[in-house]
Computed example of a mutant assay.
Amino acid sequence: MPIVLGLAPAGAQTAGGPGGLDELFARLKEADEAAAQRIERQIFTEWSKSGSPSADLLLERGRKALAAGDSRTAIDHLTALIDHAPDFAEGWNARATAYFQAGLFGPSMADIAHVLTLNPRHFGALAGLGTMLEQMDRPKPALEAYRAALAIHPHLDGVEQAVERLEAKAAGQEL
């Protein structure tokens, strides 16, 4: 299965202007590790704003269920969220995480495809895709997903190590 990146419609999840997402992403590329963590939190805060109180409530309930390890309930809340707000990328991302937590890689990968269609800069979705592909013993596409995540967020926790691990594995296979 090829990884398809950059499929977002024009203007999707690219809020610009002073303090907007474009500025945060520009700062993220130049930040040191400590600053990058702060900027990452700001980006996730922006991504989590649906503009709808009912959608925000469903996202909160889904995340609470995920934190409690209740994947099934999380999936139910997040499916309701997606039904209510199908253009809200973070709903798809949260459900992808719930499916991953439940061991359902196929549905998780399908939801990640929706996330990346709506928000091609979603480094968390790309890292999650890399993790699943690596666990499925698909190192080349996993490496591609990890590198795409790092191109957006150079200090993404654990991803640099994953790239090094997969590159070392590939180098060993070439010998």
Rank of each mutant, 00 (worst) to 15 (best):
G130K: 08
R38I: 07
E160L: 15
G158K: 15
A85Q: 11
L175P: 05
L58V: 03
A110I: 02
A142T: 02
A98C: 11
F123W: 09
S50T: 12
A31R: 08
E144G: 02
A65N: 07
V115P: 11
A12M: 14
I3W: 01
Y146P: 01
D157A: 12
I152G: 02
T14L: 06
W47K: 11
K29G: 07
A35C: 03
D22K: 10
G11N: 06
L143Q: 02
D87N: 11
T45A: 12
G6C: 07
D70M: 05
L78C: 04
A12F: 13
Y99D: 02
A80S: 11
L126P: 00
R95E: 02
A168E: 10
M109D: 01
E33W: 09
G51H: 03
G158V: 09
A12T: 12
T117Y: 14
R61G: 10
D83G: 10
R138T: 00
G128V: 06
L78K: 01
G20P: 07
P154L: 05
G172L: 14
A10E: 12
W47A: 13
W92P: 00
V163W: 05
G17I: 11
L104T: 02
A31T: 09
R63M: 14
K29S: 12
L58Q: 03
E144N: 04
G106W: 00
T131F: 09
P154D: 10
F105G: 01
V159T: 14
A26S: 08
W47E: 11
P120T: 06
G62N: 03
A85I: 05
K140H: 05
L5Y: 12
L59V: 03
P139W: 01
T73N: 12
A34F: 09
Q42R: 14
I75Y: 02
G69E: 13
A170W: 04
Q13F: 06
N119Q: 15
D32C: 09
Q161V: 10
T79Q: 10
E160G: 15
L5C: 12
T14S: 13
K49T: 08
G6Y: 08
M136C: 04
L24R: 09
A98Y: 06
D22E: 10
L21G: 15
A67P: 04
R138V: 00
A127H: 04
Q173W: 07
I43S: 00
E33A: 15
P9L: 05
L104R: 02
R165C: 01
G11Y: 05
P18A: 11
P53V: 05
A168R: 15
V4Y: 06
I152S: 01
A170Q: 13
M1C: 11
A110F: 01
L28I: 08
A85V: 07
A55E: 02
P107I: 01
E160V: 13
L118Y: 06
D111T: 01
D70A: 10
L57W: 04
Y146I: 00
E90C: 03
F88K: 04
M132A: 04
T131Y: 08
G11K: 03
E60T: 11
E134W: 13
Q101V: 15
